[in-house]
Amino acid sequence: MTNTKLIVSHAPFWHNGDSLFQQNLNFFIALLPAALFGIFHFGAPALGVLALATSSAMLWEVIMSVLSKKKMAIADMDSAIIGLLFGMMVPATMPWWVVITGTFIAVVLGKFVFGGTGANPFHPTLVGIAILTMSWPAFLDFDTAYVSYQFDFTALAPLAALKAQGTYALASFSNYDLLMGNEVGGIGSTFGLGIIIGGIYLILKGYARWEIVASFIAGVLITATLFFVLHPDTYAPPLFHLLSGYTLIGAFFLAVENSSSPVNRIPMLIYGFLGGLMIILVRNIGIYPDGTVLAILLINLVNPLIDTIRPKALGKGVPNA
């Protein structure tokens, strides 16, 4: 009996069985509808981009873990989700080397240098997209990306069209088309319905916080409505903003990323609302057609500040007897 070594650990001795892998697996499941639609919609190249993005992101994670002699965290699938999200936000025609560079930036510069999962102050995928947009905007231009495709709908990126042509461009986009993915855009970001279904699944599973999603969407709608009501002929209607571009994928999958979003209720509401507000500000008065990426990065940036708003801890403020 003396040689039987027991396990000694600290309470609690139970765990609810939740894990990072579970979380990411659920993210994966939730992303599937939109991703599958993207593959169906944009064909084999889309599948290639998604597969390459996911696998290269995981590969970068492996390479960096080996280089820095850190524990391999690939089994968590964290990088896979980063890569998949990256793939879903880019056009299906993106050259392979741009995808690999993008996932490198996302995984390494977005996450790894900050100390890995949980430490990234910004959403890694968005860091990748933002830096790529700054460097090689041509590869992320949806209008040129799909020139060789034949679509039975207006093959214009709705937001770019809005920016370039003003409100009369809106006529070519119906809300139903936008919702059903009849638009050009990122592989997985066009199918609004799929994103909404996946997102709701994620919320129900408890892996995305509904407060953020709801307030984000509210931010978009309220701000867009304000603009629209004031100048209906200059600005697009709120639903258009909600259903076009990255708005939905941003609301359901990007803004809710754990380590760059708040955990307390009021900050979550502020965070989401601010994100929605910024998107509309950028779209309506800024220079970028779709401000989702930078808007979410901006709320990521203010997250540490607003997340200090939290309920009083037990006994705080009670005079010490």
Binding site: L20, A119, N258, S259, V263
Partner: peptide, 24 residues
């Protein structure tokens, strides 16, 4: 016996929301 890891906090906030004493 559930595994215990030396992962870094992933900031999911579950602990914050479950804490009866509102500790961050």
């Amino acid at each position: 016996i559930p595994e215990i890891s030396d992962n870094a906090c992933v900031n999911c906030g579950e602990c914050v929301r479950v804490c009866p004493a509102n500790v961050p």
